[in-house]
């Protein structure tokens, strides 16, 4: 039996990895909760955001943690525009169309990145990439601590938006009762786009948190997709606290599983868990209509 201190270290590590998962899942679940679509372009948007963060640092010399304040609004606008002018008009409310449109976007974005930047993997070198805090029995990587803190900050801000602003009220109204909201004079297309924008902004924040310690290539974002989907389904489709807790839990599970089983089983494992979660959840939770 490994010493408890090592396990604690693994859990702490998992929590910090899980923070980024949670952030990616947060965007996905937000979009699902309001628009009732699974955004298949989420991973590709994450790749795009990673490139944006990379070039912001490389060309403009913008530190990733500062780039958040530029990229989050930019990606919010991008997400808004995508939903308002591409996904919404193309899908016309049909679920199967939405599936195909977000898939098409995903393929387009990923391959446009490949076309523009080739398959090369790039990394940034920031001074604090390897900074860590010594707890005596383990080290906590500073960038990961920042991620953990940032995720709670983002969740708090989201909660503030939802609870206190008129926009938040409109979003909640549409999520709950679309027809009623429409009758009450809420511009549903606008609310959908706002939500998609918020979800995409989450992805941009995740990218800025990741880039100091992670890498970027045209399919880098895809690595997070199965994990994020698993978290969203596990945490309850559309549930923000579910995504937050689910992300942290999956992070810990992955870290412990890697510890006990070795990394190689990890990739298949996450897909198998994902399939299991989809299959064994009672069908009532999949309330999607035909």
């Amino acid at each position: 039996m490994p010493s408890p201190l090592i396990l604690v270290a693994a859990v702490l590590n998992g929590l910090m990895t899980g923070a980024v998962y949670a952030l990616v899942a947060l965007g996905l679940t937000l979009i699902y909760g309001v628009l009732h679509i699974i955004n298949f372009a989420h991973g590709a948007l994450l790749s795009a955001a990673l490139f944006a963060a990379f070039f912001a640092y490389q060309i403009l010399g913008l530190d990733p943690y500062l780039a958040v304040f530029v990229l989050a609004p930019v990606f919010f606008a991008l997400g808004y525009a995508l939903q308002r002018f591409v996904i919404g008009p193309a899908a016309r409310g049909d679920e199967r169309n939405m599936l195909l449109v977000t898939l098409g976007l995903s393929v387009f974005i990923e391959n446009a990145l490949l076309y523009a930047f080739r398959a090369n993997t790039r990394t940034v070198e920031v001074s604090y990439a390897f900074k860590s805090i010594d707890l005596g029995f383990t080290f906590l990587a500073v960038p990961r601590l920042v991620s953990l803190a940032a995720v709670f900050a983002v969740a708090f801000v989201l909660w503030l938006i939802m609870a206190l602003t008129d926009t938040g009220k409109a979003i909640r109204a549409v999520a709950k009762e679309k027809l009623g909201a429409e009758l009450a004079g809420i511009d549903v297309a606008h609310v959908y786009a706002l939500t998609f924008g918020l979800g995409t902004a989450c992805v941009a924040i995740a990218a800025c948190l990741l880039i100091p310690t992670y890498y970027v290539n045209p399919s880098a974002g895809n690595a997070f997709v199965p994990v994020a989907f698993t978290i969203v389904v596990l945490g309850g489709m559309g549930s923000v606290p579910g995504a937050l807790i689910g992300g942290l839990v999956i992070g810990v599970v992955e870290s412990l599983a890697g510890f006990f089983l070795g990394e190689s089983l990890g990739e298949v494992g996450i897909f198998l868990i994902f399939i299991l979660v989809l299959l064994v959840r009672p069908r009532g939770l999949f309330g999607s209509s035909t």
């Binding site: 008009p89 193309a90 195909l100 449109v101 098409g104 387009f108 446009a112």
Partner: peptide, 22 residues
């Protein structure tokens, strides 16, 4: 023949066809 070109076009086609030739 640049990598990604054909799939990029396919992705765009998917979106455009659903939008304009459902």
């Amino acid at each position: 023949d640049v990598p990604g070109l054909d799939l990029m076009i396919y992705g765009a086609m998917l979106v455009l066809v659903i939008r304009f030739v459902p």
